[in-house]
Design a protein around this nucleic acid. Structure first.
Lengths: 114, 114
DNA sequence: TTATTATATAACTATTTGCTTATATAGGTA
DNA sequence: TACCTATATAAGCAAATAGTTATATAATAA
């Protein structure tokens, strides 16, 4: 009742993606909530292109998926991904990040469209 | 009965270290066997300084420990490390690498001192 | 002592990375 | 239509990375 092995090469690629503070935090947030680009920009206090580039990498690896709602594009963890079991195990070790979006809600800058 | 959370920052650092094919394979090997620098050189077919530099990074993070035996310095996984539970979970997903040192034994280039 | 072997460190280089600013694209609204 | 907002992409740059060769250090053997 145990998973297939992952290849070392592909696993190293995935871990390199997770080996960045910003992307790792993004994934931890997305494990519980969906989030759009402009919210990430406010959370991490970096430029919008920087966030888009991180998300592009995560999407290229199949780790996140996107869904457009009006002007906004919401990202979420792609839980059907082959590597999700590994990623979830890793994320379980990390402190909850739900406060990040809660702060935006309190400031009134949470995007809540639709 | 569950572990403390790791910090996002330190976890990202650890994952960045694991996010390299050579280092990830090293750790998988060291999870089961001890291995010295010259054996890694033969396994990975890269220069000796390259191997030493990878091992230095892993040692600086506390992931491996070294033990000198004569001319050789044997490395092993530092299982008392705070991050070992995380690392072991990751390594469990990877294919067994014990064939690597077995090959050296068959070629007669396995170091077996002491 | 000298020579040999194993490992570490220094210096260099090419590549990759993560950010920035500027610009393009796409949807919503007046 | 024109304008505004959200996002993506392009281009440029400084820092980090992973390798190399050359050299230093340490243990062993002659």
């Amino acid at each position: 009742m145990f998973k297939e092995d992952y290849s070392i090469e592909k696993t190293a690629e995935i871990l390199k993606l997770l080996g960045d503070k910003t992307r790792l935090t993004m994934l931890k947030i997305l494990d519980k909530q969906t989030c759009c680009v402009c919210e990430f920009v406010e959370i991490f206090q970096v430029s919008q292109p920087s966030i888009s580039q991180h998300l592009r990498k995560l999407k290229a690896a199949g780790l996140v998926s996107e869904e457009r709602r009006g002007q906004w594009i919401f990202y979420s963890l792609h839980k059907a991904n082959e590597y999700y079991p590994l990623i979830q195990q890793i994320l379980l070790h990390l402190p909850n990040q739900e406060d990040k979006l809660l702060e935006l809600e309190e400031k009134g800058t949470r995007v809540s469209c639709c």
